[in-house]
C-alpha cells in the first residue's frame, strides 16, 4: 500500500528516531570496549588510541574461556536436541491420525503459555535430587521440549506437497526415511528460522542457569558476566569487551540465516 506523502515523512522520522535510539547505545558500548583505561571516563565517541587491552583483561580476570565453552557446548547440544525432538513430534501431529491427538496438541500448545517461573521450584528440586546441579545436564535436559517448534514445523509439514511423499513411499520408504530424507531437507527456511529462535533463546538464557550453576566449570557466559559485574563493578572497559564477546555468536548466527528467516518469519512463520 502507498501511504500519502505527509504520512510517509512522519513514518520515516519515527522509524529513524527509533533506529537511532537502538544504534546509539550500541555505538557507545562498541567504542568503550576499544578505549584504553584513561579514555573510558572522558566521553568522546571514538577511541583516540584503539586497543585490545580490555579484552585481554577480561580473559585474565575471569574464567571467560570456560564460560564460552559452557555456553557453546550446552547451546549446541540443546539446539540439536530441540530440533530433532520437535521434528519428531511435529511429524506425528501432521501425518498421523490417532486417539487423543487434538487433546495432546492442545496440551503441547498450552505449555507455551506456562512461563518458566511457574515451574522452576519443583524442577530445581528435581535437579538436586538427580545430582544434576551445577552440570550441563541441568542446563540441557529440562529445556529439550519446544512447543513453538512443534507448532511451526507441524504447520509447514501439513502444507508439504503430497506427491513427494507418495513418490517416496512408492519407492518403499517408511515413515522414518520419508521424514528425514524427504521432508526435513525441504523445510529449509522454517528450520533456519527455528534454529535462530532456539539458538538465541538458549545462548541468552539468564534465569535458569543462574539457579542451577555454581562453579566456573558449568557457568554460561551470561552468568559469568553477572558475576564479573558484581565483583568488578567499575572495570567498565573489560565489561564492555565481555558483552561484545557474549553478543557475537547470536548476531553471527542471525546474519548467517538472516534473509531466509526474515522471509519465513514475515510471510508464514507466525501466522496463527
Amino acid at each position: 500500500m502507498q501511504l500519502s506523502r505527509p504520512m510517509m515523512i512522519v513514518g520515516h522520522i519515527l522509524v529513524l528516531a527509533i533506529c537511532l535510539s537502538i544504534l546509539f547505545p550500541m555505538a557507545i558500548v562498541l567504542s568503550t570496549a576499544f578505549k584504553p583505561m584513561n579514555e573510558i571516563y572522558a566521553g568522546g565517541l571514538l577511541p583516540q588510541a584503539p586497543t585490545f587491552e580490555n579484552f585481554a583483561r577480561l580473559f585474565e580476570k575471569t574464567a571467560f574461556g570456560w564460560y564460552i565453552w559452557n555456553s557453546s557446548g550446552t547451546t549446541l547440544l540443546r539446539v540439536i536436541g530441540q530440533l530433532i525432538i520437535g521434528v519428531l513430534a511435529a511429524y506425528a501431529f501432521a501425518r498421523f491420525r490417532f486417539p487423543y491427538r487434538d487433546v495432546l496438541f492442545a496440551l503441547v500448545l498450552g505449555a507455551m503459555m506456562i512461563p518458566q517461573v511457574l515451574t522452576m521450584l519443583p524442577i530445581y528440586i528435581m535437579m538436586a535430587q538427580l545430582g544434576w546441579f551445577d552440570t550441563w545436564w541441568a542446563l540441557i535436559v529440562p529445556n529439550l521440549a519446544t512447543p513453538i517448534a512443534v507448532f511451526l514445523l507441524r504447520q509447514h509439514m501439513m502444507s508439504f506437497p503430497n506427491e513427494l511423499i507418495d513418490a517416496a513411499q512408492m519407492d518403499g520408504a517408511g515413515h522414518w526415511t520419508t521424514l528425514w530424507r524427504v521432508i526435513v531437507p525441504n523445510l529449509g527456511p522454517a528450520m533456519a528460522a527455528l534454529t535462530i529462535i532456539i539458538f538465541i533463546d538458549s545462548w541468552n538464557e539468564y534465569f535458569w542457569p543462574l539457579l542451577v550453576t555454581e562453579s566456573a566449570h558449568s557457568r554460561t557466559i551470561q552468568i559469568g558476566l553477572r558475576e564479573f559485574l558484581q565483583e568488578d563493578m567499575n572495570d567498565y572497559g573489560a565489561l564492555m569487551a565481555g558483552i561484545i564477546v557474549a553478543s557475537i555468536p547470536a548476531i553471527a548466527v542471525f546474519l548467517f540465516f538472516q534473509r531466509r528467516v526474515m522471509d519465513t518469519f514475515v510471510s508464514s512463520g507466525l501466522k496463527g
Partner: peptide, 21 residues
C-alpha cells in the same frame, strides 16, 4: 534489520550497557 538487533542480544548485555551509560 536494525529494529531486530536488540532481539539478538541478551538482557544481561543490555542491562550492563545501560548501567554504564
Amino acid at each position: 534489520a536494525i529494529l531486530f538487533l536488540p532481539t539478538l542480544i541478551s538482557f544481561v548485555v543490555v542491562g550492563i550497557a545501560f548501567l554504564w551509560i
